[in-house]
Nucleic acid binder design. Structure first.
Lengths: 138, 138
DNA sequence: AAGAATGTTAGTATAATACTAATTTATGGC
DNA sequence: GCCATAAATTAGTATTATACTAACATTCTT
């Protein structure tokens, strides 16, 4: 098993997801922006980014934060698993907001293959409760 | 929201579950035994127990580890949520062993009401894949 | 009472998280 | 190009959780 999102901490997971969702090719997420989203100081944010850099997930220089190939794959995997849990929770009657919160706590800790199987079990929905595609969001 | 298992760390969760499952009224789990189960040293184990004591989950003196009322309730809640996830994963086709592993990583992070709803969604099984009752294991 | 088993202290280390204050490095307007 | 501002980075500090070994204390058993 190579580098896996399972070895990310919650904070690192949050960074990865924000970078993937809030940044674009042309406008990569900036350090201060990320700090604002996570509601932590810039130095703390930088510190987490440094760790993600060591783990080969991102490259960052002068506040330009970009996911590496590995990082993008990891972020997409986390987002996919996130949407599987969201779908499961919402199907079960949990509110959209709470489903998202709960999913965020566990998505990065679950194996992709487990999520895949759960996805099938709950009827293979193509989109999550927010309307985003569960597979292939690239 | 009072004291909640959500504020436990993974290690603390593992301690709680072991104490609940491996200990009995007459033979409460001993420190060294617990250290053996968790595969960590006795001092480290003691350290975690001290934190659980501060959190009001256990009482511990001379290696006699007992759950408080709150602690027992928390442990039971975690175990219930654990079994919901296990059931979900096994129903989805995940192996029993892997289902247990995956469930252990997320059970203590999920709200009871979310798990309750999922339980209903997956057909309200009365027992988990290991044959243990999902509700009221006391 | 001695020895073995068990628990506890003491001391140390590391990783992750987080902050403030100060400094450096762009960037943009003039 | 220069300066002011914005943005990023460094430096320094702190806390919590985890983990270890070695030494010491306590308890139990024979």
């Amino acid at each position: 098993m190579a580098i896996n999102e399972r070895y990310l901490t919650k904070r690192e997971r949050d960074c990865m997801v924000s970078i993937r969702e809030k940044g674009t090719e042309d406008f990569p997420l900036r350090l201060n922006e990320l700090a604002g989203i996570l509601k932590i100081s810039s130095p703390t944010t930088l510190n987490i980014l440094r760790r993600l850099e060591v783990k080969g997930m991102i490259t960052s220089s002068r506040g330009m934060i970009k996911l590496t190939e590995t990082g993008r794959e990891s972020a997409d995997r986390i987002l996919k698993i996130h949407r599987v849990y969201e779908s499961l929770f919402c199907q079960s009657g949990v509110s959209e907001k709470m489903a998202c919160n709960e999913a965020s706590l566990v998505d990065y800790l679950t194996e992709e293959q487990t999520a895949e199987m759960v996805l099938h079990r709950i009827g293979d929905p193509k989109i999550c409760p927010h309307g985003k595609p569960i597979r292939d969001d690239s």
